[in-house]
Amino acid sequence: MNSFSYIRAADPAEAVSQLAQQSNGKFVAGGTNLFDLMKENIEQPPYVIDINRLDLARIEPLPQGGLRLGALVTNADTAWNELVEQNYPLLSKAILAGASPQLRNMATNGGNPLQRTRCYYFYDHATPCNKREPGTGCSALNGFNRIHAILGTSEHCIATHPSDMCVALRALGARVNIKGVNGERTIDFADLHRLPGDAPHLDNNLEHGDLITSIDLPEKQFKTNVAYLKLRDRQSYAFALVSVAVALEMNGDQILEARVALGGVAHKPWRDEAAEEQLKGQPATADHFKAFADTVLSGAIGYGHNTFKIELAKRAIVRALTTAAAQSVEEPSSQPLV
């Protein structure tokens, strides 16, 4: 790890102005991704600005409905927050399917969306990687790419975004509150992350100096017909090969609204709103789910070792939709759906 100067910010304005002054500086929240990458010399910030003393560690209902999740609330406290468990159980399930209890006690709501890919070549200095060193090439394209993306890829990068929490936030239609050098703004969660295109070194659409202050969950709650299905090489404490977050609004057996987001398949949590229209007004049957899954994966490309993910994702979508549709009143549980 490189040596660095440590700055403890007292409030959001100070944090933003400190970072704006240090073009290579980094915020640290839980530290679980930043320090991991610093130990590998992937990140080498000369300045680390500790934002843990900022007053952003609360979860509070919004006056117009919805729930504000402070950027510094830990993933564990978010998953086990009573209001989240009751009104947005999909988010609890997704968070609890990720990492480990210790890591969730450290990881924060602001840090989780900004964690970087787990592509092995990104971590390996000995190999070319456009994300780590723009212009050097992508070793995964023709390399061992079992964990890589099948949707929204480019010839420059086929990395995935590894978060579970973000898949649920995408399905729920969260919004991200940001404080930047030029003031405050709010963006749709869908617009936080980007596809690799020809600039895979950029994971997201934030500017240097931007501080995520909170994430808002919308007024619309999905309390019952939800499911988070995570498929991985070991049953717990492993990143997703494919994950599916489903939130349904049902009237008896009929689907009024369907939200389906995928993790582990793209550079950002993947959602196909146009395809979701296909399920509207339909009965919750396997045939409809299969047709929907085919539509969502119609543009998927396999790169060899990860080609199995196309069929896996289709089956996962069908299973998660079936589970969500069959859900009646939920018991909160620490068990992620496997």
Binding site: Y6, G31, S100, L103, N105, M106
Partner: peptide, 13 residues
Amino acid sequence: GKRINSCLTMAVM
């Protein structure tokens, strides 16, 4: 009172 991984946090924090 909470369990964490002490390898991924800096003491100053």
